[in-house]
Design a protein around this nucleic acid. Structure first.
Lengths: 198, 198
DNA sequence: GGTGTATTTTGACAGTGTCAAGATTATTTC
DNA sequence: GAAATAATCTTGACACTGTCAAAATACACC
């Protein structure tokens, strides 16, 4: 019995997620429709609804995947000898992730899910976790080196905002060109580092 | 002859923009449909197409309005005696603008127009103008005070990225609570200022 | 074998952007 | 002032969307 002739797909959920991932990359968030995904998986229009409550739920799952990758990056990519090198490595890898997967990044951080939609508990949890990991990492790296009166949490928020803002401007093509990426990321790291009193 | 009975609306273009502005505020970008706007203006579904090429064009006009406001803010709101106060004023006003008009801000800077759609020449022009004004302002404020080897353009990009990233995290409801706004904006200003050598 | 559950299907509905062709009014031209 | 042209608006239509309800099918377990 061939794949195409089966009434039950067998692994529709992950087939949908995979198709969604490709569709997201090629067509963007708005070009992603449940009906197209269903067709891609060789299944009827409403079959996806037995694996995801609605479109929002599928998108949340897709975004959660992204945060998993980002979390790995945060956990691993602080290599380098000096603090400056470590931050530079991280910022460059983070930027590369965003530039390589712009639509995914938009999905992860954009209004679609967080404001227009309703983020899944799973999504919230994995997103907050990656931020906590970043805060921890930053705190460990700068332990005992922060100028008095500096809250590590505030610093994490402000520096994340810098990198995040850079990503947005970069991948949406506003104000910052991709050729400037290295120069601007160096400038941003300088921004963050000078707040650490170096 | 009453308004409702006229075949020609008279000022449909601005009526549509006004309706769109309200709709954007109440329902967000995705909740904004040309058909609803047409109905609000008391006109048939396709009438808008004689004033805007398509939905993208209308959204671009709406975003351009936003950049006009932002540009005023940049031109006027660098008050204060010290450089620190000036930056702090600006950052707070900028954040307030974004928080007060989150959907507008998303439209102005988001992928909808800049990547998924095609930004109008008018939109591009007014958006770039705002950034140029910011760069000029920053250059004027820090004239002769920049540490050697610092490119004003890079600094403008990096600092704008910081404020922009803060706005996004704030209005998209990720990570930063509105109550933390003042504290984080102070931290961000500190970030920017310390890069200026203070 | 029979029962219940998980999965998938078809049918349907309201909503969307946008094109084409025709109707109506304003404006320009003679 | 009348005729021609342009601007504006309307109706009809098409393909597409997310999602609900109800019926059909296959699987798992007792």
């Amino acid at each position: 019995m061939t794949n195409a002739s089966r009434y039950h797909h067998g692994d529709l959920r992950s087939a949908l997620l995979q198709a969604a991932s490709e569709q997201l990359k090629e067509q963007g968030i708005d070009g992603l429709s449940l009906r197209k995904l269903a067709e891609k998986a060789g299944v009827s229009r409403t079959a996806p609804y037995h694996h995801f409550k609605d479109k929002n739920a599928l998108l949340c799952a897709l975004a959660a995947e992204g945060f998993e990758s980002l979390d790995e990056l945060i956990s691993q990519r602080f290599e380098g000898e000096t603090l400056r090198d470590q931050m530079l490595f991280f910022v460059r890898d983070y930027l590369r992730f965003a530039v390589d997967h712009p639509e995914r990044y938009e999905l992860m951080f954009g209004r679609t899910l967080w404001k227009a939609g309703t983020p899944t508990p799973e999504l919230k949890s994995v997103a907050y976790r990656s931020f906590r990991h970043y805060t921890d990492k930053l705190a460990a790296l700068t332990a005992g080196q922060l100028p008095a009166g500096n809250d590590p949490l505030r610093l994490a928020q402000a520096s994340w905002a810098t990198v995040h803002g850079l990503c947005r401007l970069l991948i949406d093509g506003i104000y910052v060109n991709q050729e400037d990426m290295d120069a601007v990321s160096e400038q941003s790291v300088a921004l963050i580092l000078s707040a650490l009193g170096r």
